Simulated assay, not measured.
Amino acid sequence: MPKFTSFSGVYPAMVTPFDENEELDEKRLRALINFLIERKLEGLYITGSTGESFLMSPDERKRVVEITVDEVKGRIPIIAHIGAIGTRVSIDLARHAEKAGVDAISSVPPFYWGFSGDQIHGYYADITASTSLPMLAYNVPMAALGFDIIKRIAGIDGMVGVKYTATTHH
């Protein structure tokens, strides 16, 4: 399986399909993956907010990663969002994603309480150090990383970029 060293182009934030009983729909997930690959996208961003990560259990998130890696078969890079409300769960998801074969990981900053810059830096440093995968910080409006924090976490070994989400693009 090829290892991707740079990430550019379109990486859609992939949805995660569920059936009428709120169970992961593997057949539809595999079909969606192939539909997106057929559109010549450069990669996939999975298990993020659009992928319903915060509505899934860690085991469900792991299963989505496993199915996606199996279906992609190295054809395009996969970035797995591993963010959770706690560092321990995020590290567990990151280690699983690495073993499963994704190409990079990403995480929202800790967001429930008002965390200091030192705490946010520590969160990203701990997660990034837990694997050999490149990390992208996920800057979302509800937990916006200020420019000073972005500059600071950019110095973490293994931090390669920022996934930026905004309500406007002015």
Score class of each variant (00 low, 15 high):
140 V>R: 07
3 K>S: 10
37 I>F: 07
25 D>C: 11
144 A>V: 14
20 E>K: 08
14 M>K: 07
100 A>N: 03
67 I>R: 14
109 P>Q: 02
32 L>W: 00
116 S>E: 02
79 I>A: 05
17 P>C: 11
93 L>D: 04
41 L>T: 13
159 M>Y: 06
82 I>W: 02
76 I>R: 14
89 V>W: 00
161 G>W: 05
127 I>E: 01
68 T>D: 08
164 Y>T: 08
18 F>R: 03
116 S>T: 15
89 V>M: 13
8 S>I: 12
109 P>W: 02
140 V>P: 00
148 D>A: 12
109 P>E: 01
51 G>T: 07
57 S>R: 10
165 T>I: 02
35 F>V: 09
20 E>W: 05
145 L>N: 03
158 G>M: 08
9 G>V: 02
4 F>K: 10
46 I>V: 09
155 G>K: 15
97 A>F: 12
49 S>Q: 07
34 N>L: 15
126 D>A: 15
151 K>Y: 04
86 G>M: 02
25 D>Y: 05
1 M>A: 11
2 P>T: 10
167 T>Q: 12
51 G>Y: 04
121 H>C: 01
31 A>L: 10
143 A>P: 00
101 G>C: 06
163 K>W: 10
115 F>N: 11
154 A>M: 07
10 V>Y: 10
40 K>A: 06
147 F>A: 14
18 F>W: 01
83 G>L: 06
94 A>I: 09
165 T>F: 03
39 R>Y: 01
45 Y>L: 11
102 V>H: 05
148 D>T: 14
37 I>Y: 02
115 F>A: 04
106 S>F: 04
105 I>A: 06
5 T>N: 13
116 S>K: 09
149 I>A: 07
123 Y>E: 10
49 S>H: 05
76 I>Q: 14
63 R>Q: 11
25 D>E: 10
62 K>Y: 06
119 Q>H: 11
123 Y>C: 03
98 E>G: 07
15 V>K: 09
96 H>E: 02
135 M>I: 03
67 I>Y: 06
32 L>F: 09
56 M>K: 09
152 R>P: 00
164 Y>L: 14
113 W>K: 10
4 F>C: 07
40 K>G: 00
41 L>W: 10
148 D>P: 04
167 T>D: 13
25 D>W: 04
123 Y>T: 12
135 M>P: 03
156 I>N: 02
83 G>R: 01
3 K>T: 14
144 A>Y: 02
34 N>C: 13
88 R>K: 14
117 G>A: 09
71 E>C: 08
143 A>Y: 00
19 D>G: 08
10 V>K: 12
86 G>S: 14
9 G>C: 06
39 R>M: 08
114 G>R: 12
28 R>G: 01
141 P>T: 13
111 F>R: 01
92 D>N: 12
72 V>F: 01
64 V>S: 04
43 G>H: 02
158 G>L: 12
67 I>V: 12
11 Y>T: 05
155 G>V: 01
66 E>V: 04
34 N>F: 07
49 S>G: 11
33 I>M: 05
81 H>P: 08
65 V>Q: 00
32 L>C: 07
18 F>N: 05
